[in-house]
């Protein structure tokens, strides 16, 4: 496993996709959540932007930031981690490097597991940093707003972000089946769009790609309260089974 991990760390750390996704995962949550709420409450907010920002003008500052962070983190975790895993797996076909991974003493299942492990570790680190930055920015802008309740809500957003990141790992399966990253990129867009539609019609609690986001407050406090542990366990179980299927697909793929 160490050999496979070393190769994946070396390639992933040098990819443009990884660098862009790191910026998306680390910078967007604090910038969007604290920044948008602060902007909404600025005295000179006017015009069409003011209407968009209106929901963030009312209520306690910290709680509003935490609610918006739930929305932002859920989306960037799915998209950012999704594109990263799509690249790390799909590039083997796009760059025609997959052929060299056959008939090695290091099995392809181990290579696939290493890919998912590297992505998982990177995503966990990025999301942890993002939430720490969000809390620090909030404390810097308005120290009194970082109450125990707000910190608890941010911790919940962090857990939801990790769950959404885990749910992005199965895009590896799409990358294997479509023999490249374009198919997986299409799947990420499709799942994101479908999730929005299903959430709007109120079918989110039992859809793995929606439940963590709702739980994190992306749909408001009432919808968050409607998500029980069973919905989250289902989402985690789906991520685990689909990740296992991704490893299996990578290990069994041929080049016919």
């Amino acid at each position: 496993m160490r050999t496979a991990l070393a190769l994946q760390v070396a390639t992933f750390s040098r990819s443009l996709t990884a660098r862009l996704a790191t910026v998306l995962l680390v910078v967007f949550p604090p910038l969007m959540s604290v920044g948008m709420v602060a902007l909404a409450r600025a005295a000179d907010a006017a015009g069409p932007s003011a209407a968009k920002l209106a929901p963030y003008r009312e209520g306690p500052f910290g709680e509003t930031v935490a609610g918006l962070a739930g929305q932002v983190v859920s989306v960037v975790a799915l998209i950012g981690v999704g594109f990263a895993v799509a690249w790390l797996v799909g590039r083997e076909w796009a760059d025609r490097t997959v052929g060299s991974l056959f008939a090695l003493p290091v099995p392809r299942a181990t290579v696939a597991r290493a890919k998912l492990l590297v992505i998982a570790a990177w995503a966990g680190a990025c999301l942890t940093l993002a939430m720490a930055l969000t809390a620090a920015t909030l404390a810097a802008v308005d120290p009194a707003s970082l109450t125990a309740a707000v910190a608890g809500q941010l911790a919940r957003v962090w857990v939801a972000g990790l769950l959404m990141a885990a749910l992005a790992l199965p895009f590896a399966w799409v990358a294997v089946r479509s023999r490249g990253y374009l198919g997986a990129a299409g799947a990420i867009v499709g799942v994101t769009a479908a999730s929005q539609i299903l959430a709007m019609v109120g079918a989110g609690a039992w859809v793995p790609y929606i439940a963590p986001a709702m739980w994190a407050g992306a749909g408001g406090p009432e919808e968050a309260a409607a998500i029980g542990p069973a919905s989250l366990v289902l989402a985690a179980a789906f991520a685990a089974v689909a990740s296992w299927a991704s490893v299996r697909a990578f290990a069994r793929a041929t080049l016919d």
Binding site: A4, A10, T11, R14, S15, R96, S100
Partner: peptide
């Protein structure tokens, strides 16, 4: 068909990783 070689790795790194694999 296609020789071993990850485009973003150096020549030396590619040989080291290949040998380890």
């Amino acid at each position: 068909d296609q020789p071993f070689g990850y485009p973003e790795l150096s020549v030396r790194e590619n040989i080291v990783h290949a040998a380890r694999l």
